[in-house]
Nucleic acid binder design. Structure first.
Length: 421
RNA sequence: GGAGACGUCGCAUAGUCCGGUCGAGUGCACCACCCUGCUAAGGUGGAGACCCCGUUAAGGGGUCCGAGGGUUCAAAUCCCUCCGUCUCCGCCA
């Protein structure tokens, strides 16, 4: 939810943001009206309630023989109060609906437009050049007995897979390397629940336009999370936290589940787009004044990961229309995937400013002693998908794959993944 | 799964039987000031969250006793539903 005060003070800023996102601009005027209606209704109700409270004291203090008459008088008042209260509640609901559907106000500099209007900030690293025909990760996975897609499909259906032997070890190595990186940077590791309540899922902003992406267990009213961001954002819901001594930084380790609805036919080969994968996610709770600096910090950590793994990548500043509703800015780091001749997203980091925290009611106490929402940021530090770029980038002519040095300690010193005989 | 107890403003509790004098007492912790060579103790006062009105002031008003409904002129208090915690029994690992 955006700051309602912003609607009163600078509605044009909100309009421009909605415009850049290719979202409804009229919504802003609806919201202003809903805000005014709500406040008028509350004021009317509260005036009546104050009258009722005062009258109640009179009734309580009155001598017995006068009570009956006073009670009769109070009945009408009670009916009026009830009606006014209902009206106020209705206005409140409508306000929440309308204002809640306005997306986060983008940060200055975010490119306007849709999915293809991103801006490339930089390209880093040498794209690998092969003097042989490179194999794609599926072929390498089979050859090295690292990925078993056929059996994944047999057991669970399309977009499922087994990581086997060295494939399983490689994923764990990557995840543990990422975890150590996060630990070195002062993050507290959390292993998070992957089933969450509706209010938490709603609070993070995932139940909007992409609700059909999410697995839902109707019998239990629980959602399976597509990222530990959901649980990490809910971790401090309804709390007043202390970020005066610096941000609270968490690294969430979890399995992620995505329905991938509407992606039929896209990335059907391999483990680029799957229903279940592992991810290590960074999450920061911070004073809103420091949010943009923290965003750069998260991005730098992500780039450091890819660099140390010898992957070529580019960084893009996602266009406004392609941001989630909670994000005010999002950077994606995309690795070069040789056999696709394309950059593919490996990480994403979003600055949600106070939008997510306002919905989840995570606040901090400013210097004045007043509470206000904190800013939240999130960013990927490793996922299963990285195996695609790792295998393809570091492959050799015979199908073996060189293990990047930083991962070797996590693989008992293994330097090369050899093709089994 | 069965039986019972409980859920109060940071923590611990009083109040609930018998509805109004309870938006709520007490202790600890907290903040300010005072007092006392230091420390400890003591004294006085203050202090919650959210919302509305108000110049983003002074001040005023409203809501909040696990959540949501209901009864009533009036609910922490009575009734219903749900959630959670604890204890015992059963079952499973």
């Amino acid at each position: 939810m955006i700051d309602p005060q912003l609607l009163r003070d600078d509605p044009d800023l909100v309009r421009r943001s909605q415009q850049a996102r290719q979202a409804s601009v009229e919504l802003v005027d609806d919201a202003i009206a809903a805000d005014a209606d709500r406040r008028a209704a509350i004021t009317a109700f509260e005036a009546l309630r104050a009258e009722q409270n005062a009258f109640g004291k009179t009734v309580a203090a009155a001598p017995k023989d006068e009570k009956a008459a006073l009670v009769a008088q109070a009945q009408q008042l009670a009916a009026d109060v009830k009606a006014a209260q209902a009206e106020a509640a209705e206005a409140e609901v409508r306000f929440e609906q309308v204002v809640g559907s306005i997306q986060n106000v983008i940060i200055d500099g975010v490119p306007a437009g849709g999915e293809d209007d991103f801006v490339t900030l930089r390209e880093v690293g040498e794209k690998p050049v092969f003097d042989f025909a490179p194999r794609d990760h599926v072929e390498l996975g089979e050859l090295l007995r690292a990925i078993d897609i056929e059996r994944g499909v047999k057991v669970s259906g399309s977009r499922f897979y087994f990581l086997t032997g060295v494939g399983a070890r490689l994923e764990l190595a990557l995840m543990n390397y990422a975890l150590d990186t996060a630990l070195d940077a002062g993050f507290t590791p959390l292993i998070t629940p992957t089933l969450v309540k509706p209010e938490i899922m709603r609070g993070t902003g995932f139940l909007g336009a992409h609700a059909d992406e999410i697995y839902y267990l109707a019998d239990d009213e629980l959602y399976l999370t597509g990222t530990s961001e959901v649980a990490l954002a809910g971790y401090h819901a309804d709390e007043i936290i202390d970020v005066s001594a610096g941000p609270l930084r968490y690294a969430g380790w979890s399995t992620c589940y995505r329905r991938e609805a509407g992606s039929y036919g896209r990335d059907t080969r391999g483990i680029i787009r799957v229903h279940q994968f592992q991810k290590l996610e960074m999450f920061s709770y911070i004073d809103p004044a420091d949010a943009e600096a923290e965003h750069e910090r998260l991005l730098a950590m992500q780039e450091g990961m890819l660099q140390s793994l010898g992957l070529a990548y580019r960084v893009i500043d996602t266009a406004a229309g392609d941001l989630g509703s909670s994000a005010a800015r999002k950077f994606d780091v995309e690795a070069w995937v040789p056999t696709q001749g394309a950059y593919r997203e490996l990480t994403s980091t979003s600055n949600c400013t106070t939008y997510q925290a306002r919905r989840l009611e995570t606040r901090h106490r400013g210097e004045s002693g007043k509470t206000s929402p904190v800013a939240t940021l999130n960013g990927t530090l490793a996922t299963t998908r990285w195996l695609v770029a790792l295998l393809e980038t570091h492959q050799q002519a015979d199908g073996s794959v060189v293990v990047p040095e930083v991962l070797r300690p996590y693989l008992r010193g293994l330097e090369t993944i050899e093709v089994p005989s």
